[in-house]
């Protein structure tokens, strides 16, 4: 599985990568982006299966990235899962409504991450 981690915090990208490795999911590659705009560039040039995306980021946030994917008709088969501290129902519903297939609330364990990703991805990568 080819994964893209999108977060403006280098520390959080390291942490997410680390927990991802602990899930036991089959990882072919892990790429990183610091905001939604960088992520869109990568999604247009690389084949990505899973995007783990923060919401609050400079330049282009997670919500703007999801909107851009829809509006600009960027073709990607990537499954997008939001990773955020915000677990309020309003925020979760909004992000899922914009096309995210899963929502992972920080803090999370490797087990919670695996469950969320398996649900979002279906059985293809389980």
């Amino acid at each position: 599985m080819r994964v893209l981690i999108v977060d403006d915090s280098p520390a959080m990208r390291v942490f997410i990568r680390r927990v991802l490795e602990l899930t036991g999911l089959d990882l072919e590659s892990v790429t990183e982006a610091g905001n939604g705009r960088e992520a869109l560039t990568i999604l247009q040039s690389e084949s990505i299966d899973l995007v783990l995306c923060d919401i609050n980021m400079p330049e282009m946030n997670g919500e703007q990235m999801l909107t851009a994917l829809k509006q600009d008709g960027i073709s990607t088969d990537a499954c997008i899962v939001i990773v955020s501290t915000d677990a309020t129902s309003k925020r979760v519903d909004r992000m899922l409504g914009l096309g995210a297939r899963g929502y992972l609330t920080k803090p999370f364990s490797p087990e919670t991450m695996r469950d969320t990703l398996e649900r979002a991805l279906g059985t293809a990568y389980a």
Partner: peptide
């Protein structure tokens, strides 16, 4: 900094799960 951010978001999500925050 990240730990402060996660603690704050987690606290606010429990405080007002139907609300919203920045």
């Amino acid at each position: 900094g990240e730990m402060a951010n996660v603690i704050c978001g987690s606290m606010l999500s429990t405080y007002a799960p139907e609300g919203g925050f920045c």
